[in-house]
């Protein structure tokens, strides 16, 4: 089909009145709405970060604190972002009724997620020597934003382990019943994507300008 024909087809009555979105389950919508409200929460936090930063003016981080180094956060990114892939793989597996894929994928994600949290802990151990949550507004923002995200990772990991435990039993998930897997997966992807925003805000943006 050429481009022109494509446009004509896409703007026909038939195409324009296509139902979109369609066919999602109630659980899917529930999780998506929950993620939407959570995403707004993070947007408000990140907005607050930039608001305080620009209202503060002057050097940032303030009070002679050093800008965060990039090595560890990049390692954390390398651990967390790919952790969505095993979840996708696991979900696809259970859609075909392959329970072993579900178990393996979840286990791999669990390991990656825990690694991420350990890295967060080492990051904190180092940072706490330089500044704490009460040092100044920058310290408050740093720990609250990363901590809040860390908490979300923890919640996500709890979901993943819960799924893993459930999937180890027989009679829980299968090709026709995997709503819970899909919903937990949506949440985990969300936790991942938010990390990208936090990486930019907390670690990269102080280095710009």
């Amino acid at each position: 089909m050429n481009a022109r024909g494509g446009i004509a087809a896409a703007t026909s009555t038939e195409a324009l009145t296509t139902e979109q979105p369609v066919g999602r389950s109630a659980g899917w919508w529930g999780m998506v709405m929950f993620v939407a409200t959570e995403a707004t929460l993070f947007a408000c936090l990140i907005g607050s970060y930039f608001y305080l930063r620009f209202q503060h003016g002057g050097p940032w981080p303030p009070d002679g604190l050093t800008a965060p180094t990039l090595a560890r956060p990049l390692l954390m990114t390398a651990v967390l972002l790919p952790s969505s892939l095993p979840v996708v793989w696991a979900e696809r597996g259970i859609r075909r009724g392959q329970r072993w894929r579900l178990r393996t994928g979840l286990a791999v994600t669990l390991v990656l997620g825990v690694t991420f949290l350990i890295l967060v802990a080492t990051e904190y151990a180092e940072k706490l020597r330089e500044f704490t949550i009460t040092t100044n507004a920058y310290g408050s923002l740093f720990y609250v934003i990363t901590g809040f995200h860390g908490f979300h990772v923890l919640v996500g990991l709890t979901m993943i382990s819960w799924l893993l435990v459930a999937s180890l039993r027989r009679g829980t998930f299968g090709a026709h019943r995997h709503d819970r897997v899909r919903n937990a997966a949506i949440y985990w992807h969300f936790v991942d994507v938010v990390w990208a925003a936090i990486l930019f805000t907390i670690y990269l943006s102080p280095r710009l300008s």
């Binding site: 009724g97 392959q98 329970r99 819960w162 009679g171 829980t172 299968g174 090709a175 026709h176 019943r177």
Partner: peptide
């Protein structure tokens, strides 16, 4: 709170046939 939610959402047991499990 966490454990109540975990129990709340615990999947009910169903026969493999109904679930559609191959392996």
């Amino acid at each position: 709170v966490a454990s109540t939610i975990a129990v709340w959402l615990w999947p009910p047991r169903r026969p493999d046939q109904e679930l559609g499990v191959s392996a």
